[in-house]
Write a protein that binds this DNA or RNA. Structure first.
Length: 282
DNA sequence: AGTGTCGCCTGAATGC
DNA sequence: TGCATTCAGGCGACAC
């Protein structure tokens, strides 16, 4: 499940092999993923150069020389696999989009569950396009801070864990990093989002940044559905404190030596949350 | 506007 | 062994 660090890692892995190269053609092997592919995608991009790659929230953006941007959201199970020789690639199950570069290399978009999305837009539409207009600030940018988080959550009665998954509050945080950041900042996932103290918003904002940065430094987290574009594995999953660790000892408590507590799993908004009942108080 | 629920989709895990 | 059921979850659509 690619969240911000995974998409950032994919972007960094792809960029050296794609930037500056030109599109020969794009072959679609089905009409849609979560949404239909953009009409005439191949025709609109044929012959254009990829100027650079970037990321916004969990979207990977390809900036083209003709002023267009292709945005890919990998959903739950999306993968991008680089191919040195596209002619030698025989499409596998769930290879939905094949992007051929003029030098013979290319990339394959594989998405078993098809929760992913591909958009094509003009460069100046990135802030107004329906998929992007409501996105909150990038957590690793200067636009994000404790006070900003506090302002955006003012009056919100929803649990803080649920609010962190809302992409309009802060962009790019998903289920793994929401639980990890709340644990790191000592905040209970069921705490009402609008009712943290100023110090707690500061700690939470700092923890979100820290956990995301550490995950990026580790190449992201490899779970059931995510691999890096070179086929290699991220390894931040070995640094999880609470995610998928129900019943195990809380590492913070364990380090303290005295208090023994086990990580608990609850369901909020239909999704699993993990927390330490000792470290994280309402 | 905020909040909650549903549905999309497949593979892995579990149950009988 | 094999078939059926359950679960995972980002996000758009929708109802209230």
């Amino acid at each position: 499940m690619p969240e911000l660090p995974e998409v950032e890692t994919i972007k960094n892995g792809l960029a050296p092999f794609m930037e500056g190269r030109a599109i020969e053609k794009i072959v679609l092997r089905r009409p849609d993923l979560r949404l239909p592919f953009p009409p005439n995608l191949s025709k609109k991009l044929k012959g254009t150069r990829i100027d650079h790659l970037s990321r916004r929230a969990k979207y990977l953006l390809f900036h083209f020389s003709n002023g267009k941007i292709m945005a890919i959201h990998l959903g739950m199970s999306g993968r991008i696999i680089l191919q040195a020789d596209m002619a030698a690639h025989s499409p596998a199950a769930h290879d939905h989009m094949l992007l051929y570069l003029t030098d013979g290399s290319g990339m394959v978009l594989n998405d078993a569950r098809r929760f992913g999305m591909v958009y094509l837009m003009e460069a100046d539409e990135v802030s107004t396009h329906p998929g992007f207009a409501a996105l909150g600030p990038e957590p690793l940018s200067n636009e994000f801070s404790g006070p900003v988080l506090q302002e955006r959550l003012k009056g919100r009665k929803t649990p803080i864990k649920v609010a962190l998954l809302d992409q309009s509050i802060v962009a790019g945080v998903g289920n793994i990093y929401a639980s990890e950041a709340l644990h790191q900042s000592g905040i209970h996932p069921q705490k009402e989002a609008g009712k943290l103290t100023g110090a707690q918003y500061e700690r939470l904002a700092a923890a979100i940044r820290d956990v995301l940065q550490r995950a990026i430094a580790s190449g992201g987290s490899t779970l059931k559905d995510y691999r890096r574009s070179n086929g290699g594995l991220g390894y931040f999953q070995h640094s999880f404190s609470v995610y998928e660790k129900a019943g195990q000892a809380c590492p913070v408590c364990a380090a303290g030596g005295k208090v023994k507590s086990a990580i608990r799993k609850i369901v909020q908004g239909g999704r699993a949350s993990y927390y330490c009942p000792v470290c994280q108080k309402k």
